[in-house]
Design a protein around this nucleic acid. Structure first.
Length: 525
RNA sequence: GGCGCAUUCGUCUAGCGGCCCAGGACACCGCCCUCUCAAGGCGGAGAUCAGGGGUUCGAAUCCCCUAUGCGCUACCA
């Protein structure tokens, strides 16, 4: 049967493209420019890279490496500390790299600004072979050309003004000291095509593509030259990146050919859209990885969510640890369609992780820094050696099912960890369908009975309080609510008996006294 | 404007020619459990598979066209 392009849609065919039989090592890279914080989309890309190299490739019996490379060829936009922040973020997520600026490796250096001569050599080679040419046009002229094109409703673009300069003309300008950039001599006719791992073949008409700049006048390469040269020299086998690079992929393909490099496999990963449409950005709440950390998300939950945004195992499985993903992820199952970031689902996953997938000890340890930051407990070691860790542990066990974000801990745990309750309305002490006087009487009764109750015994406390409700002639719930409010200052809390035990005899008594006083002054009998 | 990519419930997705008058999950609604809130259990509503043409005995699945959305259109990446 003829091998039509449509055959590519079968899972086997896609898998074959991802891991060709002859390939024995997968090398992928993430090459961010240090111009800001790590975007959540970048974090997902890194995860997919790691899963592909360390998971899928190794499962197939091949070697796999994930490389981190810094693309700092634009000094104008360089942001100090950005690269470090980026690495910190990935480390927090638990995503490591095999080679990188900090680790070094066989292809060092991993910072483009330190690889200048490679780009210059490649540019020389292209110039010599006629695949590139020097362009002496000034930014002003370029702008003028563009303005004119826009005015005449023509597609804006470079007019190839310097493409056919004679050797003598070029030399004359060089002698005159004119600055120049190096542009690709892009074919005027024909087509450029390549296989995208997620989409199949993509074809571009060559006459629609511009002679883009390869080497800037400051001698630095543009992305187009740098990425091709570095990916080749670092033996990158799969070029993964955002979909915004599809339109310029023909430039890269032609460069590979012109330079005589072996063609890599292209995989343009999907975009993450904001709920309001368009790219996810700061305006949509947080798009920066660091924000998620601050907002109390577990790295496991974020990873879990990100994995599912654009990829699925079977459409049913929702929970994945990194190990699960390493065991099951296949890059060819990543969707080519962009997906919308859904905060609700992330929140749900985060809560699920807290509720069901981590231990109480773990929760306590993770919550500790947030409690310290908020001033709920004093500063100290941010681990189990903190003097109040035991209390945090107890509070964590009681609130485990109720926390959605770690940031909620200071508020939710305050009545366990602080002696003073936050002020609350006296009316909260009075349940529906109960008179204030009756509520007051219940509180007094409880306070009077308190010395005889062993709060450390859940069952004994329950038995005594239920009995008390009977004696008072009220429903258990009606009695429990005033107690709950008195000891926590709020109408919602973990189970009452556990809560009382955690707060302890003395504080319970004090808080009951306070509630009685409060209610008495509000509703004098 | 040009070029390109994408298109299954509001959202994330399953689906690879018959198992689909479309399955799972979030969110939403109801019920159960229950001392409150969660968690948990059960159930409901929600997609004429963007639209239209083909191909086929049969299409969400293959092909074409259109529409819409998004991306790119810098000496930024």
């Amino acid at each position: 049967m003829t091998h039509r392009m449509t055959d590519y849609h079968s899972p086997e065919a896609r898998a074959a493209v991802a891991l060709p039989p002859g390939l024995d090592e997968v090398r992928v890279r993430f090459a961010p420019s240090p111009t800001g914080s790590l975007h959540i989309g970048g974090a997902r890309l890194v995860m997919y890279n790691v899963l592909f190299a360390h998971g899928q490739a190794k499962r197939a019996g091949k070697k796999g490496a994930f490389i981190l490379r810094i693309e700092d060829t634009d000094q104008k936009r360089f942001v100090e500390g950005s690269a470090q922040g980026l690495m910190d973020g990935l480390t927090w997520l638990g995503l490591g790299w095999d080679e990188g600026p900090d680790l070094g490796g066989p292809y060092a250096p991993y910072v483009q600004s330190e690889r200048q001569h490679h780009y210059r050599e490649a540019a020389e080679q292209l110039l010599a072979s006629g695949h590139a040419y020097r362009c002496f046009c000034t930014p002003e002229r370029l702008q003028g050309v563009r303005d004119d094109q826009v005015k005449r409703n023509l597609p804006p673009g470079y007019d190839r003004h310097c493409r056919d300069l004679s050797v003598e003309q070029v030399q004359a300008k060089l002698d005159a000291g004119e600055t120049f950039v190096v542009r690709i001599t892009f074919p005027l006719e024909g087509e450029t095509r390549f296989i995208d791992l997620l989409r199949g073949e993509i074809v571009f008409r060559n006459d629609k593509i511009e002679d883009l700049v390869l080497l800037k006048s400051d001698g630095y390469p543009t992305y187009h030259l740098a990425v091709v040269v570095d990916d080749h020299e670092m033996d990158i086998t799969h070029v993964t990146r955002g979909p915004e690079w599809i339109p310029t992929a023909p430039i890269h393909v032609q460069l590979y050919k012109a330079l005589g490099y072996e063609m890599p496999i292209f995989a343009h990963m999907p975009l993450i859209l904001s709920p309001s449409g368009g790219k996810l950005s700061k305006r949509d709440g947080s798009a920066a990885l660091a924000d998620f950390r601050e907002r109390g998300y577990l790295p496991e939950a974020l990873l879990n969510y990100l994995a599912l945004l654009g990829w699925s195992l079977d459409g049913k499985t929702e929970f994945f640890t990194m190990d699960d993903l390493l065991e099951h992820f296949t890059i060819e199952r990543v969707s080519a369609a962009p997906s919308t970031f859904d905060r609700d689902k992330l929140d749900w996953l985060n809560q699920q992780w807290i509720n069901h997938h981590i231990t109480v000890d773990d929760l306590a340890a993770r919550v500790l820094p947030f409690l310290i930051e908020a001033g709920t407990i004093d500063d100290g070691p941010r681990d189990a050696t903190h003097p109040r860790f035991q209390e945090v542990l107890v509070a964590s066990s009681l609130l485990k099912d109720r926390i959605r974000h770690l940031t909620e801990a200071p508020d939710l745990m305050s009545y366990f960890l602080r002696d003073e309750l936050e002020p609350y309305e006296a009316a909260m002490l009075v349940p529906k369908k109960v008179e204030p006087e009756a509520a007051l009487a219940m509180l007094v009764a409880v306070r009077d009975a308190l010395p005889g109750i062993d709060l450390t015994s859940h069952d004994a406390t329950e038995a005594r309080l239920r009995g008390l409700a009977g004696e008072l002639g009220v429903k258990a719930g009606q009695l429990f609510m005033p107690i709950r409010v008195a000891v926590t200052g709020r109408t919602q809390s973990p189970g009452l008996f556990d809560t009382l035990a955690a707060i302890g005899q003395d504080r319970v008594r004090d808080r009951l006294d306070h509630a009685i006083a409060l209610l008495s002054s509000e509703a004098p009998a």
